[in-house]
Design a protein around this nucleic acid. Sequence first.
DNA 1: CTGTTAGCGCATTCAT
DNA 2: ATGAATGCGCTAACAG
Lengths: 352, 352
Amino acid sequence: MAATIIDVANRAGCSKSTVSRFLNGSTVIAEGTRARIAQAIDEMGFRPSEIGRSLKRRLTQTVGVLVPSLTNPVFASSVAGIQAQARSAGRSIILATSDYDPDIEKEAVANLLGHNVSGLILTLCNGVSSAALDLIESAGCPFVLLFNDAVGSNGPAISVDNEGSARELTEAVISAGHRRIAFVAAHFASSDRSRLRYCGYTTALEAAALPVLPPLEVHFEGGDTSAVIAELFTQPDPPTALLCSTDILALTAMATLRDLGLTVPNDVSVAGFDGIGLGAMLSPPLATVAQPTWDMGFEAMRLLSEQLAGRMISAPAYLPHALRLGGTLAVPKRSIATSMNNNKAGRKSDEL
Amino acid sequence: MAATIIDVANRAGCSKSTVSRFLNGSTVIAEGTRARIAQAIDEMGFRPSEIGRSLKRRLTQTVGVLVPSLTNPVFASSVAGIQAQARSAGRSIILATSDYDPDIEKEAVANLLGHNVSGLILTLCNGVSSAALDLIESAGCPFVLLFNDAVGSNGPAISVDNEGSARELTEAVISAGHRRIAFVAAHFASSDRSRLRYCGYTTALEAAALPVLPPLEVHFEGGDTSAVIAELFTQPDPPTALLCSTDILALTAMATLRDLGLTVPNDVSVAGFDGIGLGAMLSPPLATVAQPTWDMGFEAMRLLSEQLAGRMISAPAYLPHALRLGGTLAVPKRSIATSMNNNKAGRKSDEL
DNA sequence: CTGTTAGCGCATTCAT
DNA sequence: ATGAATGCGCTAACAG
């Protein structure tokens, strides 16, 4: 099959040690042998076996990456960022997905660990209590959390301030004049981000002395979202604004509202979270909290590299987010009666 | 660090061979030792090293996956399908991206090969002539092409009938009454799909004796698309319909048209290719040729597994596509010249 | 049923 | 500057 280092040595008329040294540039090699080795390698199309190499060195050039799903552009984009940085660092990535399921998550991590990955980048269902994380820590494998907040004292993590930004977003919705604001969330059990964002929502509402509605938890990529939304808006006194824990959810919600004969933002304002590219291409554009997803992946990989190199730099836990207001978020039209004490009700939507 | 098979053997009071046999279930083991081994494994949290295992077996349980980009939901979705099937087959995937660059593509494949992947699933820039493919074939590594057509006689491939479906789509556009139809394409050099789809377009136009416009080649994820489109529609006698080689391109095009004061489909019809989920959520929904991207990935992985198992089944090269008409594709109403003037001022934000 | 032995492809002492 | 020998963790003959 594939040529080995011994084949190269034979053809070049030297020992495999010399070839190994050639490959790793560990010592100086005589010009003659150097040339013969180079030629032999070229002629045989030899590529050193990563696995032989890894076995010997006790470490690989691969890192494990675990994300909930690739279907969500947020994670796909972050993996792209990871990939870009990994490539420039000469590392490969083994990719696993958890499908938002803690059990699969644990199994996937165990599998990754079995591959002797030199490190891991993970977006967990729950960064605080995770069987997968226990596995990793007992194995002593370096890791960086991505989108999850840093767990306790240790371990670097790259995220955005989910709770704070959700609070800001909710405050903006309140400023626009909304008083009855609902929150559609991916199941908390499968996404701690979802929970944090809901917390930000409640904080803002409580500060404004407005009613906090219980979260409408839905399966992230399941089909129950439409039904939940439809029920919400066919009941009396529906909300004038709908916050969604992700942009994908927001898009699903908007499609459902359209089917119900409601227009966004004329009848209902909608805002999401994530800042996926396509949201900005819509008309009107989706109001959201934009995260630098690609950069976050890139930065997570960079951080992991630093860690692997023994340089424990302090992690900038939160990357900056950006509120994208306007678009699907506008002043409520039909709730003037309940917002008479709102002195900002006259703002125009594009001022947001 | 991590426990090895020898550690387990010592603790269980047997030889490492027995442990190995336990792990692989290759022979029957006495109930007593079996229990002791199981306990030892559990206590030490032992996971067999994929590396050592692979080195010995001369084959890995990993497959290499190369796609142009993860930012395009088409490929992200196909990787998700690959991943799902890989997991159920007990395989892991090493992911690489080419960024639509044949040089990176080749380098990535070389790297994948170095990891001793048992097989490869690839979406190449060009499935017909590819340095990467040469590398693979000379290494004798099994592979399945995905989105690329089968190359020559050998090698299975999973794709859709790009040319045929593009022809069908174009025919539908013609049927709707369009006579002047332009085609925006990702650079042919970076995507053979793009070229095939353009071919389908030309075939349909020629059959209808309509003018074939030269392709407007753009960088797939670059920023030149808007400029190209803007130029096209600010010249005299602009097309009434715009076909785009991908949905992403179509979305970019529509955003540009909006900025130009044109409405879709009232002023210009637009159709894409791929059937990304978000296209269907738009209002009006994006006309397109939908491919079963997730299934295609799943099927590609299944095919590779069959191949690795020695069962060379015949590959269903083309999976069924589906035309999604209507939405952004409508009957042409009037000349662009008049509509541009009429629409510049009065367009509503939710008109898309 | 189980232990012994021999590599897989490579990097790395230790010699020379 | 280069060879010979060793072993990484594991599986697969080959005994027993």
